[in-house]
Design a protein around this nucleic acid. Structure first.
Lengths: 206, 206, 206, 206
DNA sequence: TATGAATGAGTATTCATTCAT
DNA sequence: GATGAATGAATACTCATTCAT
């Protein structure tokens, strides 16, 4: 096995383990066991444990940037509708993620590795919120407010994701911004984004 | 300070630290320094480090369940429109999250505490994807395909969140389900969910 | 409950626990739980954990000394045979030990408190040696060398105890004595002590 | 130093310390200091502190079982007298114990490691009981009831050991047996076991 | 006297990293 | 390059003891 292959093999094993157990719950021992190499060998290819994850994340980032460039190049905007373009973008993104689920699991902070005890509670919470949204959608369908052909599971996931992300974005990461966030108008904007795609238009809407 | 207060104080300090540095980068020493208590005191209130996080997460979950119950009770479905109901739900959720940003940061897996090196790369990636979507939206606006009054930042965040979450949901967490996911139809469903709320309807769409 | 009673109660609980789990595997918490008193109360009656065991052992020693004095006084050597005197001594000793099994368990170093894992191995070893001696005795009975009416279990225990104790006494505790121990003559003396009480005399013994 | 040697070295140092100070008064730091190795090295060879003692005890047990097998094989029962056989067994046992005094000290529950304070009281008690028995033997000799050539120290130790062990055996370890122990007959059996080897036969016994 | 919250020195254990072979 | 034994700083956790109420 030549150096490059060995390096790839270590990355592959580390990625698998990081994605499954999380970074902090994966030990160097686990990686060398999985890769069937000696402890010292790993340190010939990577400076330290951090270096492995940094390499994985950088690789992921670079592939992503490259994939965008390729996708954009192969696409002639003049020949497709806006909808087709949107569809294309979404599809390419999903394909890119599906192509390497493990690294996505790491990079999208989905499997950053809490022990099972913690994960269980978080899973319970997420299930609860998805169910709650699903119930609301079903109610809307029953009351003839929401499209009957809606994929409930998918919509609930999008909603939950949007609320999580926006909470994080507006309350945590941009907490230093000048203007305070107005929850009321934020809610309105979210609602307005989703309603047309989900709700059945009413002739005389209240 | 009575036992209940002390317990709360420890939880508060731990939450702050977990949310800032992450669970694995927070040491017991950090917590007791922050709380200005002795090492042993912490272990009179919590079995171990895990127990602290579990308590925080359980508390969060329970508060969430309780808040839903309260919100549902105070709301008379007959007297409001579907849109008002939707708006109410979204607003209450955002308020709940904003009310305790730290725990959300932990529970929503946003601040699970990676060291700065990793965080930097992930942030770079997220910024990239948000920018990409924003650029697409701006292009759509320029081409008169997308509503001019759209909150670009918010929409880009929702899109990104949806794509992350759905990738995780369909490729990772439900990887055991019977039917394979068809990326094409999944993309279509996503596109259909968003288009009506974002795009300007065309009489004769290209 | 008056102070003396409380003190006795603590000693009683501690003795029970020390005897069962051993000194090092019994915590102050265990004692106060068992005695149903507060942590601080214990320290009003005893200086520290050591003090409790020292008190128990000293009490035991003093009772023993006293019991000997009483037994000796009540016994008129002129009116009994040597055998009766021997029998009396043995009986009184056994009665004294049986009267407070827990403290004996501690003081006779039988239950000085190893965790179960260790105890299991030691028990296995002791059972093995007792069985081995028992088998030898049975063989002797079969070959008509040993009295048929012998209590095998009791004899095997005496033998094992003698060998353990003498090993300790001659090899460990008196290892500083001038003359080296001659194993051959030591064995002969042991054998000579036991043979007459166990073996069947032969007309022409080899 | 190869792995096996290192392992042996650690065991040797631990055995020495356990035997001298006792298990609970020996720290990992003491062992690594004694073995002149790093903290982590110890944990490469043993799972934890318990594991070291378990290994020592298991080794001891296995050596013992093996030694019995060897001794039995090398001995032709047909060519020796019962007394010779008995002598052989006793001698082999003593030799085995003397061969590794430290582990015996641990396994025979003689040196399970109490702090000096406790040990002092127990020693006082044991000395007292040995002296008492010795005095009785001397009295018997003076009164011409007991053999003049008796090794008083050895006999007193055997007696004491027998009484300790039997108390433990009948009052503690077999406390679950059906029939209650009759102290009187137990005493008689003990007396009968010892008298022939110790006492001078009388034509007309008092 | 009784209480039990608070203390912190002490202890076992982990695990990334090094380096001689 | 590859190996894996050795390292030791870092860390979680324990538990006898104190002391304000």
């Amino acid at each position: 096995m030549n150096p490059d292959e060995r390096r790839e093999q270590i990355l592959k094993c580390a990625k698998k383990l990081f994605s499954t157990r999380g970074y902090y719950n994966t030990q160097i021992s686990d990686i060398i066991d999985e890769a069937k190499i000696a402890r010292g060998t790993l340190y010939q290819y990577f400076e330290n444990k951090d270096d492995i994850l940094v390499t994985l994340l950088e690789d992921f980032y670079n592939k992503w940037v490259k994939s965008i460039a390729v996708n954009s190049k192969n696409f002639n905007l003049d020949q497709v509708s806006a909808k087709q373009y949107f569809h294309h973008r979404v599809k390419e993104t999903l394909l890119f993620f599906r192509n390497d689920i493990e690294i996505c699991n790491i990079a999208l902070r989905m499997g950053m590795g809490l022990s099972d005890v913690f994960q269980a509670i978080i899973d319970k919470f997420e299930k609860k919120i998805i169910n709650l949204i699903s119930d609301d959608i079903r109610l809307g369908i029953k009351l003839n407010n929401i499209r009957k052909d809606l994929n409930i599971e998918l919509t609930a996931n999008i909603m939950a994701a949007a609320l999580f992300r926006l909470s994080y974005f507006y309350f945590v990461s941009s907490s230093g911004r000048k203007s305070k966030i107005d929850i009321d108008s934020l809610s309105s904007e979210i609602v307005d984004t989703f309603i047309p795609g989900i709700f059945i238009p009413k002739s005389q809407g209240k």
